[in-house]
């Protein structure tokens, strides 16, 4: 029997999982290296997904069918890849605990991390307890309740878009793409939980470029009465009863705006994960902002400039889950093409 080709997949998030499954289907032996003790990556942080409010857990379980018990897939947990390099046509991954993995090709699916909102000190994250991030909102929502730190239901909640995205001061010039729709989704979730409360979304541009996004936006206005304010919050402060005071400008009315809310949710942006930055730098495929750079965004988006190293998912740029899963499969096809050529 001919020797099976082997592929290393770094990161068992949605992109890595879907790539691994497709490769296994083609009878390629896949080793998935995951730095955490479980698979799923960032999907574990979400409760429900836009645009259809599907339970993230459900999506995950259908995603991992034929992944966990696949004889062609070996999943290794708690393996953080510290070095990835090409040696004699083989890809070699060294992990932090000193283990070495070898394969014919490698897929980088190291994904993203969320922006650390503490860099925007003026917004008060980490200083005022009722200023939270969108990820923390998801966690609360998973437990079925959105409560302030005092344990009460927020009567007023505000969401602020573009925290850590479209911000040259923190070095991120790009749009993270998912925060606008996530804010709409979370505002609806909040209003469904507490119809009596008010929800405000502070935005610069509402970017609803996805199927059913605009409809969701419309629904949030019409059905839930979410109020949209065009302006970026500049500063927050805290009252003695731990409410959050917001300073912004209602740019449509050209008037300074002040309001007090019980909770402020920062829609934090997407940044390249540390592993993405480190591993792509090692292989000279690093692009702007620490993301990995694909060979050609139109025709070879899963190829990198390094032969045999492929890119899948949001290690390249901010992507939605839908796109990420598709991109994983697409990466698998590129790998198969490559392995056929190299025989």
């Amino acid at each position: 029997m001919e020797n099976k080709k082997t592929v290393l997949v770094i990161g068992a998030g949605p992109a890595g999982i879907s790539a691994a499954k497709s490769l296994a289907n083609d009878n390629i032996s896949v080793t998935v290296l995951e730095k955490e003790d479980t698979f799923g990556g960032n999907i574990n942080n979400w409760a429900k997904l836009f645009p259809n409010f599907k339970d993230a857990g459900e999506v995950k379980s259908s995603l991992i069918q034929n992944f966990v018990n696949n004889q062609n897939i070996k999943i290794v947990y708690n393996k953080k890849v510290t070095e990835l390099k090409k040696h004699n046509q083989k890809w070699i991954a060294n992990t932090s605990d000193g283990e070495v993995f070898e394969s014919d090709a490698a897929i980088l699916s190291t994904g993203f991390k969320v922006f650390d909102a503490q860099y925007k000190e003026e917004l008060g994250y980490g200083i005022y307890p009722n200023v939270i991030t969108s990820v923390e909102f998801e966690k609360m929502y998973k437990n079925g309740k959105i409560l302030t730190v005092q344990g009460s239901v927020p009567k007023k909640i505000a969401f602020l878009n573009c925290v850590g995205s479209r911000d040259e001061k923190v070095g991120n010039h790009y749009c993270s793409r998912i925060c606008c729709i996530a804010a709409v989704k979370q505002a609806i979730e909040f209003k469904e939980l507490y119809p009596q409360s008010e929800a405000f979304i502070f935005y610069m541009d509402i970017r609803m470029a996805g199927q059913f996004y605009e409809e969701l936006y419309r629904k949030s206005q019409e059905k839930h009465g979410v109020v949209y304010i065009r302006g970026r919050i500049s500063e927050t402060s805290s009252t003695i009863d731990k409410k959050v005071q917001i300073k912004a400008e209602d740019t449509l009315a050209a008037t300074p705006l002040r309001m007090t809310v019980d909770m402020l949710v920062l829609m934090i942006g997407v940044e390249a994960s540390k592993s993405t930055t480190i591993l792509s730098k090692q292989n000279n495929i690093d692009g702007p902002y620490g993301f990995a750079k694909s060979k050609d965004i139109h025709t070879a988006d899963n190829y990198s400039n390094e032969n045999g190293l492929f890119l899948a998912g949001s290690c390249k740029r901010p992507l939605t889950l839908t796109e990420t899963i598709a991109d994983g499969k697409s990466a698998a096809i590129s790998v198969v093409e490559y392995l056929k050529q190299t025989k």
């Binding site: 000190e121 003026e122 008060g124 200083i127 500063e235 927050t236 402060s237």
Partner: peptide, 9 residues
């Protein structure tokens, strides 16, 4: 300093 509220606190 109003942009660095933790100094004020």
């Amino acid at each position: 300093t109003h942009l660095t509220p933790s100094i004020i606190i």
